[in-house]
Design a protein around this nucleic acid. Structure first.
Length: 446
DNA sequence: TCTGGGGTCCTAGGACCC
DNA sequence: TCTGGGGTCCTAGGACCC
């Protein structure tokens, strides 16, 4: 186990001010947790993902990577590349347990950290300035604790901003070369003198926010490496990739990155979607699936003590084209029936003559629960000061909720029309006439 | 070979208000 | 009678991240 960093310039040991940002990325996270939970998998090519025809790989062990298996790869392709590949369905409750432990170890170093998904964090070390902390040593100690206490390997990157810290952590990780595994340095940092040379030879695809679509656009402009970005002016760039992307790319090309480490980032949406092994056909199958989605989303909202004003339904057809419908209400919702009713009204305007491979239901524009009560009250001008008992308030809120929701669904129908799908009787029969799990019409037409 | 499920952010157009 | 411009909110779609 290497305790200390190997960097391009190992003679230098940066101060917190020279290298304030740290990035940690756990190695093959999901697959590694599966191996910890079942040691008989150790040394075998293991992946986590969907095993069916439409499954993709979410995480692959290094043994699997040696065969070319990568995350985001369709499982059928992965299986072809590595016939002995063991594809596991994924145990997200377990990953969350490990993730919380991981965050807690980072928190022991500094409370100024920002998670990205379950297996990465950025941390801002500047509050440690007075404690005589040296970033490379702190990074090595962090890595050691993660290994000792969780049994997980990781790469730690340090840099003067998020851009360099993230690139450095990638450099710190093991690499597959010619079916062999080359160990990473574990902790990595590049000195200011080396930064420019390191950055300029990277492909644009290595930059945050540059995916397949943007790199294809840039390639058409003859911009393939970061150094190419430096010689094009931002206005030209903006014409092709938009102003925000152009500004970010121009900054990255100069090694600048103005993104801060954001502690306690607020959640802005929660949702649930599913790609079906067999595509859904027709309104009935779609609304039945939406009811299940609604229960999942509603539970997620209640767990977070949130109510959502905006509900979005998204449909992806077999040809991979997608459409979405959304509606913002003057109040928030967090219960299964309300969300299902809105979703059904929304999907009634979607063309379901083609079969549906993916169905998504998302909630956003959150209010705190207490704010929602105020919205409902003001909306109806119905509260009076002498109704203070919580039972009375609660029952009034439910009344308001139903009435307001009925209005909202009427509005959705007005907006999209009732005849956008099938016949009116079909709509009445299957769409807007919402039967609840409790066996009653909750918000159906009168 | 053919693309998951959890999310975030950006863009463009329209409605509406001042 | 015909009309500006800025700000905000909403909707739909797309790209990207892990």
């Amino acid at each position: 186990m290497k305790l200390f960093a190997v960097s391009i310039s190992p003679s230098k040991n940066p101060s917190v001010d020279e290298s304030p940002i740290l990035h940690v990325d756990l190695d093959a996270f999901f697959a590694s947790v599966e191996i910890l939970d079942d040691p008989s998998l150790r040394g075998k090519p293991v992946a986590v993902g969907g095993a069916g025809e439409r499954g993709v790989i979410a995480s692959a062990s290094y043994e699997a990577r040696r065969y070319g298996v990568r995350s985001a790869m369709p499982s059928v392709v992965a299986k072809r590349a590595c016939p002995s590949l063991i594809i596991l369905p994924g145990h997200f409750d377990r990953y969350e347990v490990y993730s919380r432990e991981f965050h807690s170890i980072v928190r022991d170093l500094t409370p100024d950290y920002e998670p990205l998904g379950l297996d990465e964090v950025f941390a801002d070390l500047r509050s440690l300035r007075r404690l005589n902390v040296w970033p490379l040593e702190a990074g090595a100690a962090l890595r050691q604790r993660i290994t000792d206490e969780l049994g997980l390997l990781c790469g730690v990157g340090l840099g003067r901003n998020k851009l360099f810290a993230k690139l450095a952590s990638k450099e710190a990780k093991p690499r597959v070369v010619d079916r062999g595994l080359v160990e990473g340095s574990g902790v990595f940092w590049v000195s200011p003198e080396q930064e420019a040379r390191w950055l300029e030879v990277l492909p644009v695809r290595a930059l945050w926010g540059v995916g397949p679509a943007t790199s294809a656009k840039l390639s058409q402009l003859g911009l393939n490496y970061v150094r190419d970005l430096a010689r094009v002016d931002e206005v030209t760039l903006a014409r092709h990739v938009g102003p925000a992307m152009a500004a970010a790319l121009a900054a990255y090309a100069k090694g600048e990155d103005y993104r801060e480490v954001v502690v306690d980032r607020e959640v802005k949406s929660v949702g649930h979607d599913q790609t079906f092994a067999r595509s859904l056909v027709g309104f009935e199958e779609v609304t039945a699936a939406l009811r299940v989605h609604a229960a999942v989303v509603a539970r997620a909202l209640r767990e977070r003590h949130l109510v959502a004003r905006t509900i979005t339904v998204s449909v992806r057809y077999d040809d991979l084209t997608s459409v979405s419908r959304s509606q913002t209400l003057p109040f928030g919702v967090d219960d299964d029936d309300a969300i299902a009713s809105i979703a059904h009204a929304l999907v009634a305007s979607v063309d379901l003559s083609n079969s549906v491979r993916l169905l998504g239901l998302y909630a956003s524009s959150f209010l705190e629960r207490s704010d929602n009560h105020m919205q409902l009250a003001f909306g109806l001008e119905a509260t009076s000061s002498d109704e203070k008992s919580s039972a009375a308030v609660s029952s009034r809120e439910q009344q308001v909720d139903r009435a307001a929701l009925r209005d909202a669904i009427d509005e959705i129908r007005r907006r999209f029309g009732r005849t956008s799908l099938g016949t009116a009787s079909e709509l009445n029969e299957h769409g807007l006439d919402v039967t609840t799990q409790r066996g009653r019409h909750a918000f159906g037409p009168e």
